[in-house]
Amino acid sequence: MNGDILIYILIAVMVILGYSARLLTVSGAIAAFGVGFFTVLGLGLKGLFILGLFFVSSSFWSKIKSANKSKAEEILVKGSRRDWQQVMANGGLAALSSALYFATEDKLFLLGFCICNAAANSDTWASEIGSMSKVKPFFIKTFKRVERGTSGAVSLLGTSAALLGSFVIACASYYLFHLTEGEFLFILILGFTGNVVDTLLGAFIQAGYQCSVCGMKTEKTVHCGRKTNLIKGIPFLNNDTVNFLSGLSALLLGTLIQ
């Protein structure tokens, strides 16, 4: 019991540090503690390490700035500081999988936890690293080059980063949970698949807007002090919703295959 208390204190310290470093908002910090709590409940320190690997590595890439990336952030609704919606979109399903593993001890939920983190890491690395590409990406719906940071766009750098992001989580899961080579590939492939689904949703149904003042295409509903005009997608399907749906798709696909 004392050991568990120390672990939860560790989570609280990590969350406070994340807030102090401006990686989390207040709501994001509260949500992050909840995700950490349920992760430790089912999978202990090993699960917390996987979760921390995703959060720390993604935050690291978020903080790296370049001229290209700064311009890309003009397109995005939110910056590198995560609120509760971003935390839950990327970590909520993993926390749920861990809680279900605690209740059932079914390995399916352990693999689900790993897949969710691999998908989240794959997508985040693709977005953060891909936005630093020197070459503008292709929008998969039209195959025309668009601004960096556009949802539904792909580049060689971003795609490579997505595969590497999934690979990192799959490797850590393989060693920490003593998985088989087949389970390693299972996590790797489905994690990357989550990013592919995210890209498809981003291109075809995620909401996109255009500023009525400067003409910039963006995900923001307000730009240059005025409301933007919806030019594609469904209004309530923002980036957080798409992230959640892509992780859910990878999880459900893994459940069906398993």
Results as ranks from 00 to 15, higher is better:
T25K: 06
T150S: 13
G52E: 12
C171H: 03
K141E: 14
D106I: 03
L252I: 15
E181D: 11
K220G: 11
K227V: 08
S57L: 15
V196T: 01
A126M: 06
I205F: 06
F236M: 13
F143I: 04
G3S: 12
F192S: 00
L201F: 11
L110E: 15
T180I: 07
I64N: 13
T124S: 15
G254L: 07
A21G: 08
A161M: 10
G149V: 01
S160D: 12
G92I: 08
F60Q: 11
A94V: 05
L157N: 06
A29G: 11
G79A: 14
R226E: 13
A31W: 04
N195M: 11
F102E: 11
N90Q: 12
D123H: 01
R145L: 09
L24I: 08
L245Y: 02
N239E: 04
S155N: 08
E74G: 11
I234N: 08
M14S: 15
V87A: 12
S57W: 02
L51T: 09
E74D: 11
K78D: 05
G247E: 01
L230P: 14
Y174M: 14
I64P: 08
S97G: 08
S70F: 02
G152H: 04
N195C: 12
T180W: 04
G52M: 07
L23T: 09
K232G: 14
E147S: 15
F54D: 06
Q85C: 06
A170C: 01
G91T: 03
G158D: 14
W125Q: 07
K136P: 04
L76K: 15
N117G: 13
G158T: 06
T142W: 06
G182H: 04
L190E: 02
A29K: 06
G191H: 00
A103R: 12
I257C: 07
I234H: 03
F192V: 00
C214Y: 01
S127T: 15
L41Y: 09
E147H: 09
A21D: 07
L111G: 02
K71I: 01
G152S: 12
F113C: 11
S166C: 09
G79Y: 05
V154A: 04
L245E: 02
I169M: 10
S66H: 08
G215T: 02
T199Y: 01
F138S: 15
I231D: 14
S122R: 00
K227Y: 07
G28Q: 06
A153W: 01
A119R: 00
E183W: 07
S57N: 13
Q210F: 08
L43V: 14
F167T: 10
A95H: 00
I234F: 05
D4T: 08
Y209M: 07
D198V: 00
L96V: 09
S27E: 13
S133N: 11
K71C: 05
W84I: 11
T39S: 12
C214H: 02
T142E: 13
R145F: 04
Q258M: 14
G112V: 03
S173G: 15
D83M: 13
A153H: 02
